[in-house]
Amino acid sequence: MFAAIASGNALQLSTEVPNSNGLQHTIVLTSTKPKSYSHISLFILPNVTFPPDFAGTVYFKLSPTEEFRLFGYVSIEKPSAIFKVRLPNVNGSGMSDPGDGLGEIDMEDDTSGETLSSGTLAEIIIGISIEPKNQAVAKLQEVKLQQTSGNNASSLVVTRPGQNTITSPGQLAKIYPLVTQQLAAKIVKHAHNYLTGFLDTQGNVPLKCFDNWWTKFRTRLEVDGQFLNEVTED
């Protein structure tokens, strides 16, 4: 159903994960000799019937023992995606930005505390999970909020186990206190702007109006969290 090409390598097809009813697939990108990957292209194969209300969420990991990390998705409207692989000590500073605004895969080796000195990689494992599109978009928005790359706001980073990963609001507030304050302020202001339109003569707002705001807010956040940038706090 899917295929991927890493720079300098042959096309490799996906394999269906057993007992997944065709909803999960993997692609193992290997090299017969060390490669300095620069980009990975993933796409839905031609003549494949892909459900319009679903998406194939794309995950990466560096070895079978590690956990998958979410990086993007493909769908009937976006049947392909390009991922930029940034390997240390490789003369790749002139690489163009990844297509479709998707993330970089930053290869780091936590076992030694240093980046991979050889600038090469023998294997990348890609996982694709077919799931409802709204669910896939919500997952991506959550991951983008939790991203820990400090160099590129649009980058997502795959790291070795043991490195900082944000998994809770408390961790977000501890690592990025200022950003957390700004986020909270924008959410409160957005709620205030909406609810002031329902004030009664005594300055009260029906609880149902708050419930309606929260439902609409979550739906919009799943579609495009960038709208929060437009909320002014004055």
Rank of each mutant, 00 (worst) to 15 (best):
S75L: 05
T15S: 12
G170S: 01
P51F: 05
K35M: 00
S80R: 08
K33I: 12
T196P: 00
V28R: 01
T26G: 07
E230M: 13
L199H: 14
A122F: 10
F43R: 15
S155T: 02
A122I: 07
N19S: 06
K144M: 11
F60L: 04
F198T: 09
N229K: 04
R160C: 15
T49I: 15
A138C: 10
G170Y: 00
P98K: 05
N91L: 11
L45W: 01
P169C: 07
P98G: 06
P161F: 05
P46M: 14
P52W: 10
I125A: 11
T26D: 13
S96V: 12
G101L: 13
G119P: 11
H192D: 13
R69K: 11
L70R: 09
I130D: 02
T26R: 12
S129D: 13
G72R: 03
K189W: 00
T32G: 15
Q135T: 03
S149Y: 09
F198Y: 14
I166Y: 03
F54P: 02
V74C: 04
A153T: 07
A122K: 13
F227T: 12
P52S: 15
S14M: 04
G225L: 04
E66Y: 15
K189M: 06
V223Y: 05
S112F: 08
N152G: 11
A191N: 03
P206N: 13
F227Q: 12
I40T: 06
Y59P: 09
Q12C: 13
K139G: 06
G22D: 07
V158E: 05
